[in-house]
Design a protein around this nucleic acid. Structure first.
Lengths: 187, 187
DNA sequence: GTCTATAGATTGATAGAC
DNA sequence: GTCTATCAATCTATAGAC
C-alpha cells in the first residue's frame, strides 16, 4: 500500500477516536512505521493532512449514498440502509463520524476544512431530503410532513446517537436512540 | 469572585469551544489574569479540573431541569422549555454542551470524568422519559409510542442539532433540525 | 495564594545527508 | 522517499521564595 494512503488511514482512525486536537504526527509515524519527519514529505503541514482527510472521507461517504440509492427503490428501504451503514461505520462504538470529530475541533481547523465540513453536511441533508420525499410518496415512511426538516432531524439524530453510544461505550445506545425513527419505516 | 470559580468559568468556556484537548493552562491563566503555576494550587492536575467542571455542569443542568418541571405542567410545555434552554445555552452557536465537547475527547479523559458523562446522559434521559410519558397522557405531544425511546432520540436530536449549528456557524441549523419535533407539541 | 524559575516531555516543522 | 538531527514553541507539572 502507498505510504500516503497508509498515513491517511492512520490519521482517519486517530482523528475519529481522539479528535483533530487529540492526535499527533508521532502517533501516525508509530502506526505506519516511518519517522515523523517523513510525514511532511506527503503532507507539508497538519492542515494539508486534515484537508486531504475530509476530502477523501466525503468522497467515500457520498459514494456510499449513491450505492444505496442504486440498490434500494423504496424510501424506507433507503433509510434502513442509511442507518445500517452509519452504524457499521462506527467500529463498534469506538469511532465517530469524521464530521462529528472535526466539528468539535472547529476552532483549530483551517478555513478550507471547515468549508468541506459544511459541504459534507449540505450534501448529506440534500440526499436525505430526497429520501424522505420519496418515502412520503411511496408510503414507506410514516408521518412525513416536511422532507427537508425530516432530513436535518435525521442527520442530527444519527450524529447525536453516535455521541451517546461513544460516551457510554455501548453501541446499544445508538440503536435505542434511532429506534423511534426506525419504527416509522413501513415496508 | 473566587479565583477557583473564575478558573472553572474560563475552563468551561474554553472546553465548550475547543474541546478538552483544545485548551491549556496557559489559556486559562491569560483569561483569569494569574500565572499558569497558580492554577495548580486550585486544581493539582488537568484531570481534577475536568472532574470539577463536569460535576458543576451536571449540577447546574439538573437544577435547570428541576426548575422547568416546577414551572411547566404540560408535557409539551416542558419539552418546549427544554428546547429553549438548550438553545439558549449555545451562546449563539459558538459553544457546545460540555457533554458533547467531552465525548469527543473521551480517550484523553480520566475514568471518573467518563463516569460523570455517563451519569449526565442517564439522568437527562430519565427526565425526558417522564416528560414524554406525561405528554402522551395529557395529549400535549403527538405520536408518542415508547417514552424511553423518544427520550433517547430527543437527547440525540438536540446534541446532533447543536453539532450541525456549530459546523455551519449558523444557529438556524439547530432550529431546522428540531422543528419536526417541535411541531409535535400540541398545546 | 500567587509568584519566578525550571523541569521533562511533546508539539509541528525544517535542513540536509543518503 | 526516508532518514538523523535539530529547532522553537508549547504542554502539564513541580520546587521553593514571598
Amino acid at each position: 500500500m502507498e505510504t500516503k494512503t497508509a498515513l491517511l488511514n492512520a490519521a482517519e482512525r486517530a482523528s475519529r477516536t481522539h479528535g483533530y486536537d487529540g492526535f499527533s504526527y508521532a502517533d501516525l509515524a508509530r502506526e505506519v512505521g516511518i519517522r515523523k519527519a517523513s510525514i511532511h514529505h506527503h503532507f507539508p503541514g497538519k492542515a494539508d493532512l486534515a484537508l486531504a482527510l475530509i476530502n477523501r472521507y466525503r468522497g467515500n461517504f457520498e459514494q456510499a449514498l449513491v450505492d444505496i440509492s442504486a440498490k434500494q427503490n423504496l424510501g424506507g428501504a433507503k433509510l434502513q440502509a442509511y442507518l445500517d451503514a452509519y452504524r457499521a461505520g462506527m467500529s463498534g462504538g469506538k469511532t465517530m463520524c469524521l464530521a462529528v470529530a472535526f466539528s468539535i475541533g472547529r476552532e483549530s481547523l483551517p478555513e478550507a476544512v471547515v468549508k468541506e465540513l459544511h459541504t459534507f453536511h449540505q450534501s448529506g441533508i440534500a440526499w436525505l431530503s430526497e429520501l424522505f420525499e420519496l418515502g412520503k410518496q411511496d408510503n414507506s415512511i410514516t408521518g412525513v410532513s416536511n422532507p427537508e426538516f425530516e432530513a436535518a432531524a435525521c442527520l442530527a439524530l444519527v450524529e447525536g446517537a453516535q455521541l451517546q453510544a461513544r460516551a457510554a461505550d455501548d453501541l446499544a445506545r445508538f440503536d435505542i436512540a434511532v429506534s423511534a425513527l426506525q419504527q416509522r419505516i413501513n415496508l
